[in-house]
Design a protein around this nucleic acid. Sequence first.
DNA 1: AATAAATACTTAGCCCACTAAATATATCAC
DNA 2: GTGATATATTTAGTGGGCTAAGTATTTATT
Lengths: 141, 141
Amino acid sequence: MKDTVDCDIRQSLDRISSQMRRDYSESLRELNLYVGQDNLLSRLWVGDGITQMQLCEHLKCEPPTITNMVKSLEQNGFIYRERDKQDARVMRIYLTDIGKELEKPVEIRWKQQQEKLLHTILPEERLLLRRLLKQMESNLL
Amino acid sequence: MKDTVDCDIRQSLDRISSQMRRDYSESLRELNLYVGQDNLLSRLWVGDGITQMQLCEHLKCEPPTITNMVKSLEQNGFIYRERDKQDARVMRIYLTDIGKELEKPVEIRWKQQQEKLLHTILPEERLLLRRLLKQMESNLL
DNA sequence: AATAAATACTTAGCCCACTAAATATATCAC
DNA sequence: GTGATATATTTAGTGGGCTAAGTATTTATT
């Protein structure tokens, strides 16, 4: 019953990702953040002043998604936007002080979530798991 | 660097699920379906005439989500709703002929997607992968 | 220089998913 | 039987994510 195994794998993947999203989302609400916004901010913590197109590539999503996320994050005071001097088409995104302060608390919650997911999995198993997941990831390209 | 491994696992999971969603979504558009709707229909193909609450439990989502999905599926002619005779609070959901006809084409696309994801993974590896995923799944409960 | 094509972003409109609050109906308790 | 509580669904509003179409601005072509 190879089919049953494959089916279980897919369903597990679905359930894990939706449950993770729910859990993590709840955890982020304490910081007045929505799930997905942390991902955008984490790119800015590496270095801000980047364009929306660069955010698109990093988040692997379409431009309108970034427009909306950026609007929401700006309204909540975590980031601000400035039009590029050289190229007036481009918007550059910067962190506010409030946005910068979120790095640590987000990291804590992110690690907690990670540990909840993996705490029963042995180190060798994690290595193996990583290999298999990477393989599936490249299968989808 | 155990941390790096864990981090990779989480990121892989995220990327796999979002890429799967995108791919599968595109594939379902040929059938005039949106991703998620197939899941609701698949419960009805097992047996229709069930209530929205039962769909909630099956899809593990909240009642308003079902209200919207059902509305959209009804407008597109895949299902219809009837108020329960015994309990007027309850709506029972039934498949139309068009909805019934979707079972096979959806199954084909679903299997294709599954195979794309797993085709490089060996049978023994799939068994192991399933075990690890199930373990993570229960870690989240 | 004037026109065409490419790039960066926005708007409008869907879908999935959520919370909070409202509505309708059923059931339980006194 | 009447009031209180529980259950099933809907409405309103928010966010992530998408596509199609629109707006600016820049660059390439002629």
